[in-house]
Amino acid sequence: MSGPLLIEDRGTHVLATLDRPEKRNAIDQDLIDALHALCAELEQVPRTLVLRGAGSSFAAGADIAQLRERRAADARAGINTHAFTRVAELPMPVIAALDGFALGGGAELAYAADIRVGTPALRMGNPETGLGIIAAAGASWRLRELVGTPLATEMLLTGRVLSGDEAYAAGLITQLHDTGAEAFTAAEAIAARIAKLDPEATRASKRVLRAPASAHPEIDLAEQAILFESPEKMRRMTEFLERKKTS
C-alpha cells in the first residue's frame, strides 16, 4: 500500500511505516485516515502491529500547517485522539520502534503502543504548550500511567523533551539500542516471540492489562475461565508435559 503509511505483511506481524520523511513523518489528515483503515483491518483479522518511521525520525509531531487551521469544532472532534485510541485498543500487541524525533502527536501515537523500544538519539515529549495548545491526543492520561505523575507533570507543563537514555530510565521505552536499524530489528524480534504464543491468551492478556483497577480480579478470572476450556490450552500443556518426560 502506498501513501503516508506503508503496510507490509511480515509473516509474524504487520509492519506499518510512517512514510513522510521529508516532513519527519509529521502526522497529517491523510496519515490519520490511513491509520483508521489499517485499524479496521486489524480489528477484523487481529495481528501484532509494528510501527516505525521512515528516515531518521518516528514522527516529529502533527502537521503544523494543518493544525494551525483547525478550530474548536475540530478539537472537539478528536481527530488524532480517536485514531490513537483505536491503535491502543487493537486486539493484538502494538510495538513502536522509535528513533530521532517522537514529539507532540508522534509521541502520543507512541504512547498508544503496548511496547516501545528506542535509541539514544530518540527525543520524546510534548512541547505543545509552546504552540499555544495542549497535548490532547492521549498524553495527559497515557503518559502519567507510563512514567508516573511527577515526571508526566513536568513534561507536560514545561515541554521537557526526554533523550533516549532518559526515556529508558523512566520506563517509557523498555529497550535501548544503538541505532534505529537495531531498534527496528528488536521490535520485529519481539513480534516474532509473540507469534509463538497462543494468540487468544495474548489477546486476553491485553484486555486484562488495559482494564481499569476496579475490574480486577473479576476480569482476570473470567478470561482465565474461557482459556481453561480452550483446546489450545490443552494442546500446549500436553506438549509441555511430554517434552518434560523426554528431557
Rank of each mutant, 00 (worst) to 15 (best):
P4W: 02
R10M: 03
V14D: 05
A16M: 12
T17I: 09
T17Q: 05
D19A: 13
D19S: 11
D19E: 07
R24E: 00
A26T: 10
D28A: 12
Q29M: 09
Q29R: 14
D33M: 04
A34F: 07
H36E: 11
A37Y: 11
A37F: 11
A40D: 10
E41Q: 15
E41H: 12
L42K: 13
L42V: 13
E43N: 13
E43W: 13
Q44P: 00
R47G: 07
T48D: 05
L51G: 07
G53R: 06
A54H: 09
A54Q: 09
F58H: 01
G61R: 11
A62N: 03
A62I: 12
D63I: 01
D63L: 12
A65W: 02
Q66V: 04
R70D: 05
A77K: 11
A77Q: 09
T81C: 08
H82W: 05
V87D: 01
V87L: 02
A88N: 11
E89N: 12
V94W: 10
V94D: 00
V94S: 01
L98Y: 12
L98H: 07
D99W: 03
D99E: 09
G100A: 08
G100Q: 07
A102T: 00
G106T: 00
A107L: 10
L109W: 10
Y111L: 15
Y111M: 14
D114T: 02
V117E: 08
G118C: 06
G125R: 04
G125M: 04
T129N: 01
I133D: 01
A135V: 03
A136E: 06
A137V: 00
G138H: 04
S140I: 08
R144G: 02
E145D: 13
L146Y: 06
G148S: 08
T149P: 03
P150L: 06
A152F: 03
T158C: 01
D165M: 05
E166A: 14
A169P: 03
A169L: 08
A170G: 07
G171T: 07
L172V: 01
T174C: 08
G180Y: 13
A181T: 10
A183N: 13
T185N: 11
T185K: 09
A186W: 06
A186T: 01
A186Q: 11
E188I: 04
A189H: 11
A191K: 04
A192N: 12
R193M: 14
R193P: 02
D198E: 08
E200N: 14
A201Q: 08
R207V: 05
V208C: 13
A211G: 07
H216T: 02
P217D: 03
E218I: 13
E218A: 15
Q224K: 14
S230R: 13
S230N: 15
E232Q: 15
M234N: 11
R236K: 06
M237T: 12
E239A: 15
L241R: 09
K245F: 02
